[in-house]
């Protein structure tokens, strides 16, 4: 294809996106669009899968049967999200095994929030309330993103995430209406999860390298800082209902902007965790890689069995 022809195709492509048309797997797309989407969708899928670990950590110790069942269902939902996000990603011409390889080698990233430990039951509440809350803010605009399979997957993901968020808030509410020990547990969880949740919305706009292009492709509708502000404005009144204190002495309502002003985020901590040196980065990867390696003989057996069964069928047909 000549340069002119490619340019022509690119123009038609950008015009389609501008008209809010969906791009489907068999449509022509610029290589950069394909690569960017593989990166973002797989990062999202990996986050779901790694995200199963910190919550899975509390399934065996959930404090009641009702909570145990709800937590199992939640973690199962996350695995399901992983499954259809990987499938969406595969439509761009990459296999799930290749994507796993990228995760296991450290080439692909996942949400840094999952590199923090879940040390008490209240963390199950805080993750639902704050982490899923921040995720929803990030993800709702993606239901209208330009790539069809991703947009459709996100509609379902968002419905379930919003249920998880309410469930998390309800765990917190129960703790806050409980004994002093329970309330203390809830406050401690908020103290530990607040700042990492703010970091989840990504680096400040000045530092964010992908924003401009992503806006154009509707992978992003608002900037990181706008999303962060939205999250804070939405969450502070919820903390008030719980009777918990946000661990930020500089948090203050600003009449003029109609928003909360907040303190400085520790970006050194953010980059430290992103670069692989958070409290649980190594453990999370060891668990993922370990599960994958320990399961190799099982997957091999399934493949061998499928081949044998296929051969048998063929033989019978002849």
């Amino acid at each position: 294809m000549s340069e002119k022809e490619v340019k022509n195709l690119e123009e038609i492509f950008e015009a389609r996106i501008a008209r809010d048309e969906k791009i489907e797997p068999k449509d022509w797309m610029p290589e950069k669009y394909r690569k960017t989407h593989i990166r973002q969708i797989s990062q999202h899928a990996h986050s779901e899968i790694v995200g199963m670990l910190p919550e899975g950590n509390w399934i065996s110790r959930a404090p009641s049967l009702r909570r145990k069942a709800a937590l199992l269902a939640k973690v199962q939902d996350e695995a399901g999200h992983g499954l259809y996000l990987y499938s969406a990603c595969e439509t761009l011409g990459i296999s799930r095994n290749e994507l796993y390889e990228q995760l296991h080698s450290g080439k692909a990233k996942y949400s840094s929030i999952f590199n923090y430990p879940t040390v008490t039951w209240a963390d199950m509440g805080a993750i639902g309330w704050l982490v899923d809350g921040a995720a929803i803010i990030n993800q709702v605009p993606l239901c209208n993103t330009s790539y069809g399979p991703y947009a459709r997957a996100m509609v379902r993901v968002c419905k379930e995430e919003s249920f998880h968020q309410r469930q998390g808030f309800e765990i917190m509410l129960k703790l806050c209406n409980g004994s002093s020990e329970q309330k203390e547990m809830a406050q401690d969880a908020l103290n530990r999860w607040w700042w990492p949740s703010l970091m989840m919305l990504g680096p400040t706009d000045a530092e964010s390298v992908h924003t401009e292009q992503s806006m154009k492709w509707k992978l992003k509708r608002k900037t990181n800082d706008e999303l962060r502000q939205q999250f804070i404005d939405q969450t502070v009144p919820q903390a008030d209902i719980l009777g918990l204190t946000i661990p930020d002495p500089n948090l203050k309502w600003n009449e003029e902007t109609g928003s909360y002003d907040f303190g400085e985020i520790d970006w050194d901590e953010f980059w430290q965790v992103v670069k692989g040196h958070g409290p649980c980065n190594k453990k999370r990867m060891k668990d993922r890689v370990g599960a994958w390696e320990r399961g190799a003989w099982v997957r091999d057996a399934a493949m061998a069995y499928a081949e044998k069964t296929e051969k048998k069928k063929l033989k019978e047909a002849i």
């Binding site: 899968i49 199963m52 670990l53 899975g56 399934i59 065996s60 145990k68 199992l72 973690v75 199962q76 695995a79 399901g80 992983g82 499954l83 990987y86 668990d287 370990g290 599960a291 994958w292 320990r294 399961g295 190799a296 099982v298 997957r299």
Partner: peptide, 17 residues
């Protein structure tokens, strides 16, 4: 429930859970 997230594949993890 102890196995959640540690299975040989995503599909077996979902089924086990």
């Amino acid at each position: 429930g102890e196995l959640c997230g540690h299975g040989p594949s995503l599909e077996t993890d979902i089924a086990g859970t």
